[in-house]
Measured scan of single mutants.
Amino acid sequence: PEDLERKVRELQKNGVSPEQIEKILRRDGVDEREVQELVKKVS
């Protein structure tokens, strides 16, 4: 979803590592495939 992507970009802009971003997304209940997609987009 659009807002998730925005969140991921925000986190990355704040210097959060892709690994941390993955953890955060998983903790928020984002589905694994979605997590991978989002992280791939920003890394």
Score class of each variant (00 low, 15 high):
39 V>P: 02
30 V>G: 03
11 L>I: 01
1 P>S: 13
42 V>M: 09
21 I>F: 01
2 E>H: 12
35 V>W: 08
37 E>R: 10
28 D>P: 05
9 R>M: 03
8 V>C: 07
20 Q>M: 12
38 L>K: 03
21 I>Q: 00
38 L>P: 02
34 E>S: 12
38 L>M: 11
27 R>D: 15
19 E>T: 08
41 K>G: 11
24 I>R: 04
29 G>W: 02
18 P>D: 09
25 L>I: 05
23 K>L: 03
14 N>Q: 14
4 L>P: 04
36 Q>P: 04
18 P>L: 15
21 I>K: 01
21 I>Y: 01
8 V>H: 01
5 E>R: 10
32 E>D: 07
17 S>A: 09
2 E>Y: 05
10 E>H: 08
27 R>I: 10
2 E>V: 13
33 R>V: 11
6 R>V: 08
12 Q>I: 15
41 K>V: 09
42 V>I: 15
15 G>R: 02
23 K>C: 10
29 G>P: 00
41 K>N: 10
20 Q>N: 11
36 Q>R: 11
19 E>L: 03
17 S>L: 07
35 V>P: 01
19 E>G: 08
20 Q>D: 15
6 R>A: 12
14 N>W: 04
18 P>F: 14
13 K>W: 04
5 E>N: 07
9 R>Y: 01
3 D>P: 07
18 P>A: 12
27 R>C: 15
16 V>T: 08
41 K>T: 08
35 V>F: 07
41 K>L: 15
32 E>Y: 06
37 E>W: 01
37 E>V: 02
32 E>M: 08
1 P>Y: 14
28 D>R: 08
39 V>D: 03
12 Q>D: 05
2 E>Q: 13
34 E>Q: 14
26 R>C: 09
7 K>Y: 10
34 E>C: 14
31 D>V: 05
29 G>L: 04
32 E>A: 09
29 G>I: 02
34 E>M: 15
40 K>R: 08
23 K>M: 04
38 L>T: 06
30 V>F: 14
39 V>F: 00
31 D>Y: 03
31 D>W: 03
10 E>G: 05
16 V>W: 14
21 I>N: 00
28 D>A: 15
10 E>W: 11
9 R>F: 00
1 P>I: 13
33 R>S: 12
2 E>A: 14
33 R>I: 10
42 V>N: 05
30 V>H: 12
33 R>N: 11
14 N>A: 14
36 Q>V: 09
20 Q>E: 15
37 E>F: 01
30 V>W: 15
21 I>L: 05
10 E>F: 07
40 K>S: 12
8 V>A: 04
24 I>Q: 07
5 E>F: 05
12 Q>H: 15
34 E>F: 14
39 V>W: 00
28 D>V: 09
17 S>T: 13
40 K>F: 01
36 Q>H: 14
36 Q>K: 12
10 E>A: 08
29 G>E: 03
26 R>S: 10
24 I>D: 04
23 K>E: 15
41 K>D: 06
22 E>F: 01
5 E>P: 05
28 D>S: 13
24 I>W: 00
35 V>C: 05
25 L>P: 02
13 K>P: 01
11 L>W: 07
15 G>P: 00
32 E>I: 09
5 E>D: 07
17 S>F: 04
11 L>R: 01
30 V>Y: 15
23 K>Y: 00
6 R>W: 07
17 S>Q: 06
4 L>M: 08
4 L>E: 01
6 R>T: 10
5 E>S: 08
4 L>I: 09
3 D>Y: 12
41 K>Y: 01
41 K>H: 10
13 K>L: 10
7 K>C: 09
24 I>G: 02
32 E>N: 04
36 Q>L: 06
18 P>E: 07
12 Q>S: 13
23 K>P: 03
7 K>H: 06
10 E>Q: 11
23 K>D: 15
19 E>Y: 00
28 D>I: 14
31 D>H: 06
28 D>H: 13
25 L>N: 01
27 R>S: 14
21 I>M: 05
36 Q>A: 09
15 G>F: 01
40 K>Y: 01
26 R>T: 13
41 K>Q: 11
28 D>F: 10
16 V>K: 10
32 E>P: 12
7 K>G: 01
22 E>W: 00
2 E>C: 14
22 E>C: 12
42 V>Y: 02
9 R>A: 09
5 E>C: 06
3 D>T: 11
23 K>G: 12
3 D>A: 12
1 P>V: 13
12 Q>A: 15
13 K>I: 08
17 S>D: 07
5 E>K: 09
42 V>Q: 05
21 I>T: 01
39 V>I: 15
3 D>F: 12
18 P>H: 08
39 V>S: 02
29 G>R: 00
36 Q>M: 06
27 R>F: 07
38 L>Y: 00
38 L>E: 03
2 E>G: 13
14 N>D: 09
27 R>M: 13
25 L>W: 00
9 R>S: 06
42 V>W: 00
33 R>D: 11
21 I>E: 01
39 V>A: 04
43 S>V: 13
36 Q>Y: 00
10 E>V: 07
28 D>W: 15
2 E>K: 12
35 V>D: 03
4 L>K: 03
20 Q>R: 06
6 R>I: 08
7 K>L: 12
30 V>T: 04
7 K>M: 11
29 G>A: 02
14 N>M: 14
18 P>W: 15
26 R>F: 07
4 L>A: 05
41 K>F: 03
22 E>Y: 01
37 E>G: 05
31 D>E: 09
18 P>M: 15
30 V>P: 01
21 I>A: 02
20 Q>T: 10
8 V>R: 02
28 D>Q: 14
6 R>S: 11
13 K>N: 10
1 P>K: 14
18 P>C: 11
4 L>S: 03
42 V>G: 06
24 I>S: 03
37 E>I: 06
6 R>D: 09
17 S>H: 07
38 L>C: 08
30 V>Q: 04
29 G>T: 01
10 E>T: 07
31 D>F: 04
16 V>Q: 07
9 R>G: 03
5 E>G: 06
38 L>H: 05
21 I>V: 04
25 L>A: 03
27 R>T: 13
31 D>T: 11
11 L>S: 01
30 V>E: 04
35 V>Y: 06
4 L>F: 06
35 V>T: 05
35 V>H: 01
15 G>L: 03
11 L>N: 01
5 E>H: 10
14 N>H: 11
9 R>N: 05
21 I>W: 05
19 E>P: 04
22 E>L: 07
5 E>I: 14
12 Q>C: 14
10 E>R: 08
23 K>V: 13
9 R>D: 04
35 V>A: 12
2 E>W: 02
25 L>K: 02
7 K>F: 09
25 L>D: 02
6 R>L: 09
43 S>G: 09
38 L>A: 10
43 S>K: 13
33 R>E: 11
31 D>A: 09
33 R>C: 10
23 K>H: 08
14 N>I: 10
4 L>N: 06
28 D>M: 15
4 L>G: 01
1 P>F: 14
40 K>M: 04
15 G>E: 02
6 R>E: 11
19 E>S: 11
6 R>Y: 07
29 G>H: 02
11 L>P: 00
19 E>R: 09
20 Q>F: 05
36 Q>C: 10
37 E>D: 13
32 E>S: 07
25 L>V: 04
34 E>D: 12
4 L>H: 05
22 E>T: 06
1 P>N: 14
32 E>H: 05
25 L>E: 02
39 V>L: 14
40 K>A: 13
31 D>S: 14
5 E>A: 11
5 E>T: 08
14 N>P: 00
21 I>R: 00
41 K>W: 03
17 S>Y: 03
38 L>D: 02
15 G>H: 05
43 S>F: 15
3 D>L: 11
2 E>N: 13
3 D>I: 09
7 K>A: 06
16 V>P: 00
10 E>N: 10
9 R>L: 04
17 S>M: 06
41 K>R: 10
12 Q>K: 10
37 E>A: 06
17 S>V: 04
20 Q>P: 00
37 E>P: 00
19 E>N: 07
37 E>C: 07
34 E>G: 05
21 I>S: 01
7 K>P: 00
43 S>I: 15
5 E>Q: 09
11 L>C: 04
26 R>V: 14
39 V>E: 03
42 V>C: 08
34 E>K: 14
33 R>G: 10
39 V>Y: 00
14 N>L: 14
7 K>T: 06
1 P>M: 14
13 K>R: 13
23 K>W: 00
27 R>G: 13
31 D>Q: 07
40 K>N: 12
4 L>V: 07
35 V>I: 15
17 S>I: 05
26 R>E: 07
12 Q>W: 15
35 V>K: 02
17 S>R: 08
43 S>C: 12
37 E>K: 03
42 V>K: 02
23 K>S: 13
42 V>T: 08
26 R>P: 03
3 D>R: 08
37 E>Y: 01
29 G>V: 02
29 G>C: 10
34 E>Y: 14
25 L>F: 00
3 D>V: 09
33 R>K: 14
26 R>G: 08
39 V>N: 03
25 L>M: 05
32 E>K: 04
32 E>F: 08
41 K>M: 14
32 E>L: 08
18 P>T: 13
7 K>D: 01
22 E>K: 10
39 V>G: 03
